Simulated assay, not measured.
Amino acid sequence: MMLGSALSNQVGAATGSLAFPALGPAGVVAVRQWVAAVLLVGITRPRFRAFTRREWLPALALAAVYAVMNLTLYTAIDRIGLGLAVTLEFLGPLAVALTASRRKVDLGCALIAGVAVAVLMRPQPTTDYLGIACGLVAAACWAAYILLNRTLGTRLPSAQGAAAASTVSALVYLPIGVWIFLHHQPSLRYVAYAVAAGVLSSAVPFLVDLLALRRIPTAFYGLFMSTNPLLAVLVGWIVLHQTLGLVEWLAVAAIITANAVAISAQGGDKGGVREILDARNRRDRVESEE
């Protein structure tokens, strides 16, 4: 189940990138946000009118994070490829895991990740600095997403905060998506790619992870998350025919290793692990149901 969820997420991102020629990253993100909003609202049935100002503020902040995170991630995928984009985005949860730590092993993980990023950004004719910058912005957004999700989990039951944020983000992208559809008039094939990205990257992982987290320890799931950059590289190679050089492979491996070691070292710190999982699985929803 965990492998299927991770693969679905990466295949969804790869499928969405197939619609870039007709919709561009912004158009694909718009469709994905619409799909995610419909899914979350349908599952959680939030009572928006009952939300207080204290509950709406972090929800609106999370909506802004959603909008920027997905747009910068898909822009990075378009410019530097799926594998490197997802690898850079993964620096977000890694940073959250390491920020409050003072252990030598975690400082070592931060150093390894920093060196890996420096390697990926080294000057060469094919270096796409804008794509790398978008990947790093997506990472910062994911870190903010984790912290905001924790706040929403204490103020709203289940995943209603995420549903509210998805709905606001979908509304923000509504005029953007409509403009793109009217001016580009994409064929049904490209629209289907974008819808498939929303289903595979939002619906399937959300539902499958809910089931998986009831059967396995959270620490193990956090460790398994470290395989996502590797899966992204493999899916990018198989589906999109994107290849990496040896140096890029080593940088990706270094970031994966740093994340895995950081999560493993926090095996006794359930709070830290849950903060990371909240960004990927809406762990607060599972805990409230239990």
Score class of each variant (00 low, 15 high):
Leu88Gln: 08
Glu89Leu: 03
Glu89Asp: 12
Glu89Val: 00
Glu89Pro: 07
Glu89Arg: 01
Phe90Asp: 06
Phe90Val: 01
Phe90Ile: 02
Leu91Asn: 00
Gly92Asn: 05
Gly92Ile: 01
Gly92Tyr: 06
Gly92Val: 04
Pro93Leu: 03
Pro93Met: 05
Pro93Lys: 02
Pro93Ser: 00
Pro93Phe: 00
Pro93Ala: 02
Leu94Glu: 06
Ala95Gln: 00
Ala95Arg: 08
Ala97Leu: 13
Ala97Glu: 08
Leu98His: 01
Leu98Thr: 02
Thr99Glu: 03
Ser101Arg: 07
Arg103Val: 07
Arg103Phe: 06
Lys104Trp: 11
Val105Asp: 12
Val105Phe: 03
Val105Trp: 11
Val105Pro: 13
Asp106Asn: 03
Leu107Lys: 05
Leu107Val: 05
Leu107Phe: 13
Gly108Glu: 08
Cys109Asn: 14
Ala110His: 06
Ala110Met: 15
Ala110Thr: 10
Leu111Ser: 10
Ile112Leu: 15
Ile112Met: 04
Ile112Phe: 10
Ala113Gln: 09
Ala113Lys: 07
Ala113Pro: 00
Ala113Glu: 08
Ala113Ile: 09
Gly114His: 13
Gly114Gln: 07
Val115Asn: 08
Val115Cys: 09
Ala116Glu: 05
Ala116Val: 13
Ala116Gln: 00
Ala116Cys: 13
Val117Trp: 07
Ala118Leu: 07
Ala118Ile: 09
Ala118His: 06
Val119Glu: 05
Val119Ile: 15
Leu120Gln: 02
Leu120Val: 08
Leu120Met: 14
Arg122Val: 07
Gln124Pro: 14
Gln124Asn: 14
Pro125His: 12
Pro125Arg: 13
Thr126Cys: 01
Thr126Ser: 11
Thr127Leu: 13
Asp128Tyr: 15
Asp128Gly: 14
Asp128Met: 12
Tyr129Asn: 10
Tyr129Val: 04
Leu130Ile: 15
Leu130Ser: 11
Leu130Gly: 12
Leu130Met: 15
Gly131Arg: 02
Gly131His: 03
Ile132Phe: 12
Ile132Gln: 12
Ala133Met: 04
Ala133Arg: 08
Cys134Tyr: 14
Cys134Trp: 14
Cys134Ile: 05
Gly135Ile: 14
Gly135Arg: 06
Gly135Asn: 10
Val137Phe: 05
Val137Arg: 07
Val137Glu: 02
Val137Leu: 07
Val137His: 02
Ala138Tyr: 05
Ala138Met: 15
Ala140Val: 03
Cys141Asn: 12
Trp142Arg: 01
Trp142Leu: 00
Trp142Gly: 06
Trp142Pro: 02
Ala143Glu: 02
Ala143Leu: 08
Ala143Tyr: 04
Ala144Ser: 14
Ala144Met: 11
Ala144Lys: 04
Tyr145Leu: 12
Tyr145Cys: 06
Ile146Asp: 01
